[in-house]
Design a protein around this nucleic acid. Structure first.
Lengths: 224, 224
DNA sequence: TTGGTGAGTTACAAATATAGAACATAATGT
DNA sequence: ACATTATGTTCTATATTTGTAACTCACCAA
């Protein structure tokens, strides 16, 4: 599986630039990549042409509006349907509600809703990524897959209960509850997904679990 | 200003793939780009490595979760602050509320809110892009810039009134009202931006204008 | 003025990438 | 079974791209 140096570097630039809030100069980009300035110019110009980065008046490179257009095309129906459901779930449970999608062996948060009265903020944001083997969201994805001998007892418990419950697997003191969005029928789900909530300590797990399941069903209904 | 073929093609693949809801095969990508299959493989592999595309079990290439993470890093504070304001503006005016950012001579919608009871849906979505010379959002951006001799009477009217009002410049029968988010002081605004509403016909322009201005001030207050 | 620094561009040998073909392997249809 | 088609990989010449150095231009300080 061969890959392309030029493209890979360009995407690296995009990644680096996106992580900087103030923007980077060409010289800084060149340094981070370990390439000559002339190359950084060509990379940046090409990205700019595609509207993925912008140069400000001082010449600093920042992330561009093009990325918003791209991301809007990622699972738009699912995300639109999920947004109100997640808001309601966040209110009902008092935790941070999320929608996750599996991506091979990783799990990505693609929509998040905070409750109106945030307690202690959990750092679970859109774009967060973790292995399917960890965290409530990961388990909720894994439980939809064929059982294996290597399955943990957490995972077996999730299959039995119909939802995943974890403590502190992704963040110290965080409690997570998640339920899979089964892709049966014509829900238009092209990938494995789940919804759930996370909170720091103060979460009534029983109530949260029932809220998650109820909102999961509401979301599935909205998609059918 | 030289650009790189490999990177440009890779970004083109990303664009093409993102526009397809079902995903594309390698052969299709190769055909659209007019390149050999072997090249499409390397492009797709590289994009996949960076999580920007995914291959499903049938080998079709779809847009990946990585784009969500990228876009989340685009103006996060501004967008977070704007979201509730836009929802409120949509309700108050009955139209589709938006937040736009200037990108050179173009204007990109980066956050949109529909009213709860959508009338006739205006096709103004996140990622929509149009020249600053057209549409209410464009005028609201342009009115912040230095006056020129080529300015239209619409633009001069906008400067006089403090907000932009247009009829059918972007879509047949659409009415738009927008006001600039001045970047004075420490609002953290790194770019020219504006907020506003669009609707099809049924918009009380006077009431909409006052709602837009009021919500603009609310957003500026939230940012300071 | 002079000298220094950084940004942006250009020129060219050396390292990558491309286009095209060739080849194997599945999957599909007859 | 056989041909047909699509996928994935490998192999070469050409064509891009890279790394390097050199050059211009603007800006700042001595």
């Amino acid at each position: 599986m061969s890959t392309l140096q030029t493209l890979s570097r360009g995407l690296q630039v995009l990644e680096i630039v996106s992580r900087s809030s103030t923007g980077l100069s060409i010289a800084e980009i060149a340094q981070v990549l370990g390439v000559h300035r002339a190359i950084a110019y060509r990379l940046a110009s090409t990205l700019e042409e595609h509207l993925l980065v912008v140069r400000d008046d001082e010449g600093r490179i920042g992330i561009g509006g093009g990325v918003v257009a791209l991301s809007e095309r990622y699972q738009p129906q699912l995300r639109a349907a999920a947004q109100p459901v997640l808001r309601s779930l966040a209110e009902a449970s008092g935790g941070t509600a999320f929608l996750c999608i599996a991506q091979g062996d990783e799990c990505v948060a693609i929509e998040v809703a905070e409750p109106e009265t945030p307690f202690l903020k959990v750092s679970y944001r859109v774009g967060s990524r973790h292995p399917v083997s960890r965290g409530a969201a990961g388990l909720a994805i894994a439980m939809q897959r064929a059982p294996r001998r290597t399955d943990t007892e957490y995972l077996q418990a999730a299959r039995r209960d119909g939802f995943a419950l974890t403590h502190g697997q992704l963040q110290q003191g965080a409690i997570g509850v998640a339920a899979p969005l089964a892709r049966t029928g014509r829900t238009g789900l092209s990938a494995e997904a789940c919804i759930g909530v996370v909170a720091l300590h103060a979460l009534d797990t029983e109530q949260a679990a029932s809220a998650v399941l109820q909102h999961r069903d509401r979301l599935l209904a909205a998609l059918s």
